[in-house]
Simulated assay, not measured.
Amino acid sequence: MSTERIADALKRMPMFSSFSDEDLAPMIRGMKIRELGKGQVVHLQGDVCTSMDVVLEGKITVESIGADGSLLRVASFSPGSILGMNLIFSSKNEYPMTVVADIRSSLVSIPRETILEMGRVSFHFIEWLLMEISDRTLLLTDKLGAISMKTIRQKIMEFLEIEYKRQRSEVIRLDLTKKELAERLGVNRTSLSRELDKMRRDKLIDFGRSSITIMRLEAISGSSIMNPHIRY
Protein backbone atom coordinates (compact mmCIF):
# COMPACT_ATOMS: atom_id res chain seq x y z
CA MET A 1 0.00 0.00 0.00
CA SER A 2 1.44 3.38 -1.01
CA THR A 3 2.07 6.20 1.45
CA GLU A 4 -0.65 8.20 -0.33
CA ARG A 5 -3.22 5.45 0.26
CA ILE A 6 -2.17 5.18 3.90
CA ALA A 7 -2.56 8.94 4.34
CA ASP A 8 -6.01 8.87 2.68
CA ALA A 9 -7.12 5.94 4.87
CA LEU A 10 -5.95 7.61 8.08
CA LYS A 11 -7.44 11.01 7.28
CA ARG A 12 -10.89 9.44 6.88
CA MET A 13 -10.75 8.48 10.56
CA PRO A 14 -11.81 11.17 13.10
CA MET A 15 -8.67 10.69 15.18
CA PHE A 16 -6.39 11.64 12.28
CA SER A 17 -8.66 14.11 10.48
CA SER A 18 -6.84 17.19 11.80
CA PHE A 19 -3.56 16.32 10.06
CA SER A 20 -2.65 17.88 6.72
CA ASP A 21 -0.83 15.97 3.99
CA GLU A 22 2.30 17.86 4.94
CA ASP A 23 1.89 16.79 8.58
CA LEU A 24 1.41 13.11 7.73
CA ALA A 25 4.09 12.72 5.05
CA PRO A 26 7.13 12.50 7.39
CA MET A 27 5.18 10.51 10.01
CA ILE A 28 4.06 7.81 7.57
CA ARG A 29 7.67 6.97 6.77
CA GLY A 30 8.00 5.56 10.27
CA MET A 31 4.87 3.41 9.99
CA LYS A 32 4.83 -0.26 9.02
CA ILE A 33 2.20 -2.04 6.90
CA ARG A 34 1.30 -5.63 7.80
CA GLU A 35 -0.59 -7.94 5.44
CA LEU A 36 -2.18 -10.91 7.23
CA GLY A 37 -3.84 -14.10 6.06
CA LYS A 38 -6.91 -15.63 7.70
CA GLY A 39 -6.02 -17.08 11.10
CA GLN A 40 -2.57 -15.46 11.19
CA VAL A 41 -1.44 -14.23 14.60
CA VAL A 42 -1.00 -10.47 14.89
CA HIS A 43 0.21 -10.48 18.50
CA LEU A 44 0.68 -13.38 20.90
CA GLN A 45 -0.36 -13.18 24.52
CA GLY A 46 2.68 -11.85 26.38
CA ASP A 47 4.14 -9.96 23.40
CA VAL A 48 5.39 -6.47 24.23
CA CYS A 49 3.29 -3.72 22.64
CA THR A 50 5.59 -1.32 20.76
CA SER A 51 3.07 0.22 18.35
CA MET A 52 -0.55 1.24 17.91
CA ASP A 53 -2.26 -0.70 15.11
CA VAL A 54 -4.89 0.78 12.80
CA VAL A 55 -7.01 -1.74 10.87
CA LEU A 56 -7.13 -0.77 7.20
CA GLU A 57 -8.85 -3.84 5.73
CA GLY A 58 -10.40 -7.07 7.01
CA LYS A 59 -11.25 -8.05 10.59
CA ILE A 60 -9.01 -8.50 13.64
CA THR A 61 -10.13 -10.47 16.73
CA VAL A 62 -8.90 -10.54 20.33
CA GLU A 63 -9.14 -14.04 21.81
CA SER A 64 -8.68 -15.58 25.24
CA ILE A 65 -8.22 -19.31 25.85
CA GLY A 66 -9.61 -20.53 29.18
CA ALA A 67 -8.10 -23.17 31.45
CA ASP A 68 -10.69 -25.67 30.15
CA GLY A 69 -9.68 -24.98 26.54
CA SER A 70 -12.68 -22.77 25.77
CA LEU A 71 -12.07 -19.93 23.34
CA LEU A 72 -13.57 -16.53 24.14
CA ARG A 73 -13.69 -13.90 21.43
CA VAL A 74 -13.42 -10.77 23.53
CA ALA A 75 -13.63 -8.18 20.75
CA SER A 76 -13.50 -7.81 16.98
CA PHE A 77 -12.09 -4.84 15.08
CA SER A 78 -13.12 -3.75 11.58
CA PRO A 79 -11.49 -1.17 9.26
CA GLY A 80 -10.96 2.11 11.09
CA SER A 81 -10.55 0.43 14.49
CA ILE A 82 -7.45 0.95 16.61
CA LEU A 83 -5.61 -1.60 18.77
CA GLY A 84 -2.85 -1.26 21.35
CA MET A 85 -3.41 2.37 22.33
CA ASN A 86 -4.27 1.30 25.91
CA LEU A 87 -1.03 -0.73 26.19
CA ILE A 88 1.68 1.19 24.42
CA PHE A 89 2.22 3.75 27.21
CA SER A 90 1.55 1.32 30.04
CA SER A 91 4.28 0.27 32.50
CA LYS A 92 3.10 -3.30 31.81
CA ASN A 93 2.81 -3.11 28.03
CA GLU A 94 2.29 -6.80 27.25
CA TYR A 95 -0.70 -8.14 25.33
CA PRO A 96 -2.95 -9.93 27.86
CA MET A 97 -4.63 -11.92 25.07
CA THR A 98 -3.83 -13.17 21.59
CA VAL A 99 -4.75 -11.03 18.57
CA VAL A 100 -5.48 -12.81 15.26
CA ALA A 101 -6.72 -11.96 11.78
CA ASP A 102 -10.26 -13.32 11.44
CA ILE A 103 -10.09 -12.92 7.65
CA ARG A 104 -7.48 -11.62 5.23
CA SER A 105 -6.54 -8.24 6.69
CA SER A 106 -4.08 -5.37 6.59
CA LEU A 107 -3.11 -2.89 9.26
CA VAL A 108 -0.65 -0.07 9.77
CA SER A 109 1.53 -0.06 12.90
CA ILE A 110 2.36 3.37 14.32
CA PRO A 111 5.44 3.40 16.62
CA ARG A 112 5.36 5.01 20.05
CA GLU A 113 7.69 7.82 18.93
CA THR A 114 5.40 8.69 16.00
CA ILE A 115 2.36 8.80 18.33
CA LEU A 116 4.19 11.26 20.56
CA GLU A 117 5.06 13.39 17.53
CA MET A 118 1.42 13.33 16.40
CA GLY A 119 0.40 14.54 19.86
CA ARG A 120 2.82 17.46 19.61
CA VAL A 121 1.35 18.44 16.23
CA SER A 122 -2.38 18.04 17.05
CA PHE A 123 -4.25 18.50 20.32
CA HIS A 124 -7.33 17.06 18.53
CA PHE A 125 -5.41 13.78 18.07
CA ILE A 126 -4.63 13.61 21.80
CA GLU A 127 -8.30 14.17 22.70
CA TRP A 128 -9.42 11.33 20.44
CA LEU A 129 -6.66 9.03 21.70
CA LEU A 130 -7.66 9.56 25.33
CA MET A 131 -11.34 9.07 24.50
CA GLU A 132 -10.61 5.81 22.66
CA ILE A 133 -8.53 4.52 25.57
CA SER A 134 -11.27 5.36 28.09
CA ASP A 135 -14.10 3.90 26.00
CA ARG A 136 -12.18 0.69 25.27
CA THR A 137 -11.32 0.15 28.92
CA LEU A 138 -14.96 0.50 29.97
CA LEU A 139 -16.18 -1.76 27.15
CA LEU A 140 -13.80 -4.61 27.96
CA THR A 141 -14.37 -4.31 31.71
CA ASP A 142 -18.15 -4.50 31.28
CA LYS A 143 -17.97 -7.40 28.85
CA LEU A 144 -15.58 -9.54 30.86
CA GLY A 145 -17.47 -8.83 34.08
CA ALA A 146 -20.80 -9.79 32.55
CA ILE A 147 -19.43 -12.95 30.96
CA SER A 148 -17.73 -14.19 34.13
CA MET A 149 -20.92 -13.82 36.18
CA LYS A 150 -23.20 -15.84 33.91
CA THR A 151 -23.83 -19.57 33.74
CA ILE A 152 -23.76 -21.37 30.39
CA ARG A 153 -27.56 -21.58 30.42
CA GLN A 154 -27.86 -17.85 31.06
CA LYS A 155 -25.54 -17.14 28.14
CA ILE A 156 -27.58 -19.39 25.84
CA MET A 157 -30.87 -17.83 26.92
CA GLU A 158 -29.49 -14.33 26.40
CA PHE A 159 -28.35 -15.31 22.91
CA LEU A 160 -31.79 -16.79 22.14
CA GLU A 161 -33.56 -13.67 23.43
CA ILE A 162 -31.46 -11.40 21.22
CA GLU A 163 -31.98 -13.60 18.15
CA TYR A 164 -35.72 -13.96 18.84
CA LYS A 165 -36.08 -10.19 18.81
CA ARG A 166 -33.91 -9.90 15.71
CA GLN A 167 -35.45 -12.75 13.68
CA ARG A 168 -38.99 -12.37 15.14
CA SER A 169 -39.46 -16.11 15.23
CA GLU A 170 -39.34 -18.93 17.77
CA VAL A 171 -37.23 -20.86 15.26
CA ILE A 172 -33.79 -19.30 15.50
CA ARG A 173 -31.84 -19.82 12.29
CA LEU A 174 -28.14 -20.16 13.00
CA ASP A 175 -25.62 -18.58 10.66
CA LEU A 176 -22.73 -20.02 12.67
CA THR A 177 -21.58 -23.50 13.67
CA LYS A 178 -21.84 -24.93 17.17
CA LYS A 179 -18.08 -24.37 17.51
CA GLU A 180 -18.48 -20.72 16.52
CA LEU A 181 -21.44 -20.33 18.88
CA ALA A 182 -19.34 -21.73 21.73
CA GLU A 183 -16.59 -19.23 20.91
CA ARG A 184 -19.10 -16.39 20.81
CA LEU A 185 -20.46 -17.35 24.23
CA GLY A 186 -16.99 -17.97 25.63
CA VAL A 187 -17.62 -21.59 26.63
CA ASN A 188 -16.23 -25.01 25.82
CA ARG A 189 -17.98 -26.67 22.85
CA THR A 190 -18.61 -29.85 24.84
CA SER A 191 -20.10 -27.85 27.70
CA LEU A 192 -22.35 -26.00 25.26
CA SER A 193 -23.64 -29.25 23.74
CA ARG A 194 -24.24 -30.72 27.19
CA GLU A 195 -26.27 -27.68 28.29
CA LEU A 196 -28.29 -27.63 25.07
CA ASP A 197 -29.19 -31.28 25.68
CA LYS A 198 -30.28 -30.42 29.24
CA MET A 199 -32.43 -27.57 27.97
CA ARG A 200 -34.05 -29.91 25.46
CA ARG A 201 -34.80 -32.44 28.22
CA ASP A 202 -36.32 -29.58 30.24
CA LYS A 203 -38.52 -28.85 27.18
CA LEU A 204 -37.17 -25.31 26.88
CA ILE A 205 -35.81 -25.75 23.38
CA ASP A 206 -35.38 -28.16 20.53
CA PHE A 207 -32.57 -27.95 18.02
CA GLY A 208 -31.12 -29.30 14.80
CA ARG A 209 -27.98 -28.71 12.76
CA SER A 210 -28.84 -25.16 11.72
CA SER A 211 -31.56 -23.95 14.09
CA ILE A 212 -32.74 -23.77 17.69
CA THR A 213 -36.48 -23.74 18.40
CA ILE A 214 -37.71 -21.97 21.53
CA MET A 215 -40.41 -24.14 23.11
CA ARG A 216 -41.25 -21.96 26.13
CA LEU A 217 -40.82 -18.25 25.52
CA GLU A 218 -41.72 -17.25 29.06
CA ALA A 219 -38.92 -19.38 30.47
CA ILE A 220 -36.20 -18.05 28.19
CA SER A 221 -36.16 -14.50 29.48
CA GLY A 222 -38.20 -11.60 30.87
CA SER A 223 -41.48 -10.21 29.60
CA SER A 224 -39.76 -8.18 26.86
CA ILE A 225 -39.21 -11.33 24.80
CA MET A 226 -42.96 -11.87 24.62
CA ASN A 227 -43.53 -8.79 22.47
CA PRO A 228 -42.25 -9.43 18.94
CA HIS A 229 -43.33 -5.94 17.87
CA ILE A 230 -40.67 -4.17 19.90
CA ARG A 231 -38.24 -2.51 17.48
CA TYR A 232 -34.47 -2.70 17.97
Rank of each mutant, 00 (worst) to 15 (best):
P111F: 08
I162W: 12
L10P: 10
P79T: 00
D206A: 11
A25L: 08
Q40V: 05
M118W: 06
G58L: 00
N188F: 02
H229Q: 10
F207L: 07
D53T: 05
G145H: 05
A182G: 12
M1G: 15
Y232Q: 10
D8N: 06
G222M: 04
I220A: 07
E4L: 11
R231D: 14
L160A: 05
P111Y: 15
P111M: 07
P111W: 05
D135A: 07
M52I: 13
Q154A: 09
S105D: 01
S2W: 00
M215K: 15
I225Y: 07
I162C: 12
L24W: 03
E180F: 03
F159H: 05
F125A: 12
L139R: 09
E117L: 06
I60M: 00
D47G: 01
S211L: 04
L71F: 14
T190F: 11
G30Y: 12
D8S: 13
T137S: 08
D23F: 02
R73S: 14
N86V: 03
V48R: 15
T50W: 01
D53P: 06
G30A: 08
S224L: 13
R5E: 12
G39C: 00
S76L: 04
V54F: 02
L44F: 15
H229L: 10
K165C: 05
V121S: 09
V171L: 07
S64Y: 04
G119K: 10
D202K: 13
N188P: 11
E22S: 09
E132M: 03
G84L: 08
T190V: 14
E127W: 14
P26D: 12
D135E: 11
R166F: 01
L56R: 02
D8R: 15
L144A: 07
I6Q: 03
L140N: 15
T114G: 09
F77D: 05
S17K: 13
T61M: 09
L144H: 06
L181W: 03
K11M: 08
R184N: 14
N227Y: 00
R168G: 06
G58D: 02
G30K: 07
E218C: 00
A219L: 11
Q45G: 10
D175C: 00
T98H: 02
T50E: 13
R231I: 15
E218G: 06
E127A: 14
R209P: 06
M149I: 09
G84H: 04
L87H: 04
S193D: 14
S90E: 08
L83F: 07
S78F: 02
V99A: 07
Q154M: 11
M118A: 13
T137C: 03
D53S: 08
L10S: 04
I65G: 10
L72M: 12
E22D: 06
R200C: 12
R34L: 01
L130S: 13
M31V: 00
S90W: 03
R173K: 10
L116V: 09
E35H: 01
E218L: 01
I88A: 12
T213Q: 14
I162R: 14
I162P: 08
T3I: 15
V48H: 12
M97K: 10
S18K: 15
N227W: 00
K92R: 14
L217S: 08
V54G: 03
S211W: 01
